[in-house]
Amino acid sequence: MFSWLEKNPFFFAVGVFVVIAFAGLIEIVPDFAQQSRPVVGAKPYSLLELAGRQVYIKESCNACHSQLIRPFKSETDRYGMYSLNGEYAYDRPFLWGSKRTGPDLHRVGNYRTSDWHANHMWEPTSVVPGSIMPAYKHIFKNVADLETAYAEALTVKKVFNVPYDKDMNGDGKIDVPLGSFKQAKQRALQYALKVAQETKRKDLVDMVKQGKVPEIVALIAYLNRLK
């Protein structure tokens, strides 16, 4: 049998494929359904938060920051409660990262404020002396792409049944409304105005009032949501 395999490239290839394929099957498939169950209280991202998440991804924040708190006292003391599987149920893609050049951000919303983030992203060393993080000034001018964020929200709603426009906890109210793009954008602008005012930066507030959400505002909305 073995020598036959060694001389028949086609069946050899099939053999190799079988050997390499089933590890993945056994490791990933059995828990797939259970892993995708959201924890109680987990909600999908609102339009603005999703736009901020896209900024986070575009700028590859995950190259230096993790979003995974491991169950050790040293980590829970520093970052808060350890991460639970169901908290990530609406994360597409996951953003755990693999390297902490900077600190973990999974619960950064608990201990940092909008104006802290704005100052930090404008000039990191102004709030953290000695920081090696670079400034991200260009995202103060770039306008967040709400349309693509809406496209993503609508896609996950349609394809993966993510519960937008649904009453999730049975209190008779819709938890995370999405609606039409116009409605969603209106809501995002209101939310953005609040965040922009919290940053205490006039340029950001003015931009939002003109109907344009700066990327930084969307990003801060996303970071504030990480709790």
Binding site: I28, Q35, S36, N85, Y88, R92, F94, A151, E152, V156
Partner: peptide
């Protein structure tokens, strides 16, 4: 996402897997 909704950036896509599954 563009193929599903017809709007937004045509290059943008969203992962088929979520959270922990995506990580695995």
């Amino acid at each position: 996402t563009y193929l599903i909704t017809g709007m937004g950036d045509p290059f943008h896509s969203v992962s088929m897997y979520a959270g922990t599954n995506d990580a695995m």
